[in-house]
Design a protein around this nucleic acid. Sequence first.
DNA 1: GTCTATAGGGGGATAGAC
DNA 2: GTCTATCCCCCTATAGAC
Lengths: 190, 190
Amino acid sequence: MTPINDTKNQIIDLAESLLLQRGYNGFSYTHISSALNVKNAAIHYHFPTKTELGVAIIQRARQQFEKWTLHPRMGSMGFAKKLDAFCGIFRDFLKFEGHVCLGSALEHDFNTLPEKMQEEAKAFIADFLIWLEKLLKEGREAGSFSFSGTPKEQAVFVLAALQGASLMVRATDTIYLDMAIRRIKQSLKK
Amino acid sequence: MTPINDTKNQIIDLAESLLLQRGYNGFSYTHISSALNVKNAAIHYHFPTKTELGVAIIQRARQQFEKWTLHPRMGSMGFAKKLDAFCGIFRDFLKFEGHVCLGSALEHDFNTLPEKMQEEAKAFIADFLIWLEKLLKEGREAGSFSFSGTPKEQAVFVLAALQGASLMVRATDTIYLDMAIRRIKQSLKK
DNA sequence: GTCTATAGGGGGATAGAC
DNA sequence: GTCTATCCCCCTATAGAC
């Protein structure tokens, strides 16, 4: 059994939080090491380069999302409840003051990310889009959702609104995410 | 008559482009000076600190938006056409490879921005939201738009979707912005 | 696994010559 | 208005002791 709170995971936790708060170019090894009361070199022992640390953040997030989609409780949920739960992921990202969702952060920094991180970032977004598209497609077929256009188009729309709202909160007010979520649900009502 | 292509404006042009491409923490005076074939010190002559340069970018963008809203051609436009034109602003931002819209960029970097820039960034977003809210409110009263909830809530939703789509393009495909715009218009149809 | 020490580069910013 | 030269800080990363 792998311990969940070992140093390596603590580093990823902190790095992810800093990434969501300050962007990839806005945090450093020193931010992490001082928060953990160790020296920079200790971080480099676990993650030789910042690229490897960045990749680890995204890969862990992808695994967590996959686990989330496969969780037993998902099986008993209706389509609307599943959408609710999906929106909840974004509320969770914003639980911490000043955070945005991971997708927004990665997309924003995309042009300055090392290539390995760009690949993982693309895969991360694709994971979300594929799951959403499937939900919307099956939900419409089952009569739970109503929208015109393709499920793919609608999935892009919903994810864009969630990511955009998670960003807007920064320069406005936290309640704006919930306002956007209400409109998303409304736009899918029969 | 102030020349529009003087060095100062060229610097702002380049700095804005770099901001939209790489974020505030992702570009430096050297990026600008080397592109203009001058030295760093020359940039510092026009903008002593990076903060002042950043503020100048936002202030100019705010002036341009105000000018846009007051342009004579707006007077003869219907509500749907005005919304079209507003979405066009975001298409324009993305004309340049790898750009996002200014609002997304500022919101993302918000926590690492100097205070003066944070204030301007908030005002910039507020400008957009206020204009949109007014358009949606009057458009619904005139029977051109249909939506439930408050105009404010709907304005947040539309802006979030536009900003989010402008970000998503990075890690997916350029056409996603147009997909989102189609869904936005659809969601406001009677 | 963590430390000290240090290398090597890039960042923003300033002084003073031209 | 632009240059050269320089300062000081922070960054990522490495070597070698403990």
